[in-house]
Computed example of a mutant assay.
Amino acid sequence: MAYVKPGEVLDAMIEAGTAKASLNAFHIVIRGLLGGAILACATTLAFTAVSQTSIGLVGALIFPVGFVMIVLLGLELVTGTFALLPLSVMERKTTMPRMLASFGWAILGHLVGCGLYAVLYGLTVTKMGTDMSNPLAQMLIQLSETKTLGYQKMGYDGMMLVTIKAVLCNWMVTLGVVMAFTSKSTMGKIAAMWLPILIFFAQGFEHAVVNMFVIPAGMLLGADVSMADWWLWNQIPVLIGNFVGGALFTGVLFYLSQRKFTRNLSFAQQGTKLPDTKAAILPAEGSGL
Rank of each mutant, 00 (worst) to 15 (best):
K273G: 00
L282Y: 14
G246V: 09
Y255V: 12
A284W: 10
R259A: 09
G271Q: 03
G241R: 08
P275S: 03
D276N: 11
T272P: 02
S257P: 08
T262G: 02
I281L: 13
Q235V: 12
D276L: 02
D276K: 07
L253D: 04
W233P: 00
Q269L: 14
W231G: 00
D276C: 06
L282M: 13
V244I: 15
T262D: 03
A279P: 07
P237I: 06
V238R: 01
F254Q: 05
A280E: 10
K273A: 04
Y255A: 07
Q270W: 06
A284T: 14
R259K: 14
N234Y: 08
A268Y: 10
W231L: 08
T272G: 06
A284K: 14
A279Y: 06
L239Y: 03
L265V: 15
I240A: 04
L274W: 06
Q235C: 11
P275Q: 06
S266A: 13
T262H: 05
A268K: 13
N242R: 02
W233H: 03
W233Y: 12
G245N: 01
T262R: 10
A284E: 15
K273E: 00
I236T: 01
I236H: 00
T262M: 15
I281H: 06
L232S: 07
Q258P: 01
N242C: 08
F249V: 15
F261V: 14
A280R: 13
A247H: 00
Y255L: 08
